[in-house]
Simulated assay, not measured.
Amino acid sequence: MIDFGIDKLAIIGAVALIVIGPEKLPRVARTIGVLVGKAQRYVSQVQTEVNRSMELDELKKMKQGIEEAAHNINTEVSAGLQEATRDLYTEDSEMAHRYGSFGDADTPYYGNATPVRKNWRLKRGATPLWYKQKSGVRRHAQSGAARVARFRPQPPHSTRN
């Protein structure tokens, strides 16, 4: 790049003053400043665009690497699952041959355990009474008339002296 020192700038300024004249020099200096500013903005935009494209290429490469790693992990996991399933079925078929058949040979045998049935009445009964009162859970069936009577405003008590 061209190196401008103070002495060179002073010589350029003196020549410009003589050639252009003192009347037109401020206007020419402003025009030159505007043009230099536009050139600097253009150069910075080009640099920014180049940096963005480089970052985009790096991100694409990183994305491709991550996708490849995820695909490899997926294939390894699925192969492991298939192997474990195959081992499980072979053990079940060996047990069926050894101890007699207990159902379909293609499906694994897990015993005759019945699923646990959750009794919702017991579950509701386990809720503490104070929580039911606080959350407004009705504990007893109540007729409409009883409900109206419960929420009817009480008349003021008269005090006799």
Rank of each mutant, 00 (worst) to 15 (best):
E83M: 11
Q82S: 10
W120L: 14
R121K: 08
L25Y: 04
T127I: 14
R152K: 12
P153D: 09
Q82V: 06
A105N: 07
R98S: 09
L35Y: 02
I73F: 00
V46Y: 03
Q82G: 10
V50Y: 04
T75G: 01
M1A: 03
T75F: 02
G65V: 02
E76C: 03
L9R: 11
M54H: 13
G5T: 12
S78V: 03
I2M: 01
G13I: 09
E58L: 13
G5Y: 01
Y89V: 13
E91P: 00
R138P: 01
V36P: 00
G33T: 09
D3M: 04
E49P: 02
L35T: 06
R27Q: 15
P108M: 06
I73G: 00
Q45H: 13
P108C: 12
L81I: 15
A146Q: 06
W120Y: 08
Y42I: 14
R52W: 12
D3C: 01
S78A: 03
A14M: 05
I32H: 05
V148T: 01
T159D: 06
P155M: 15
K134H: 09
A96T: 14
L129C: 01
L129P: 00
N161G: 06
H71D: 04
S135Q: 01
Y89D: 05
I18L: 07
Y110K: 10
T75C: 02
R41E: 15
D57R: 05
L9T: 08
H97I: 15
N112W: 03
R160V: 12
N112P: 00
Q82N: 10
Q154V: 15
M1K: 01
V19M: 05
G103K: 13
M54S: 12
I66N: 01
R152H: 02
R139T: 08
N74C: 01
L56E: 13
S158G: 14
K8S: 14
D57G: 09
L129N: 01
G144Q: 10
A10M: 11
K132S: 02
L59R: 14
R52Q: 12
D7F: 10
G33Y: 05
T159C: 04
G103C: 14
Q82K: 13
P153T: 15
N119I: 05
S44H: 10
H71R: 11
G80L: 03
Q154W: 02
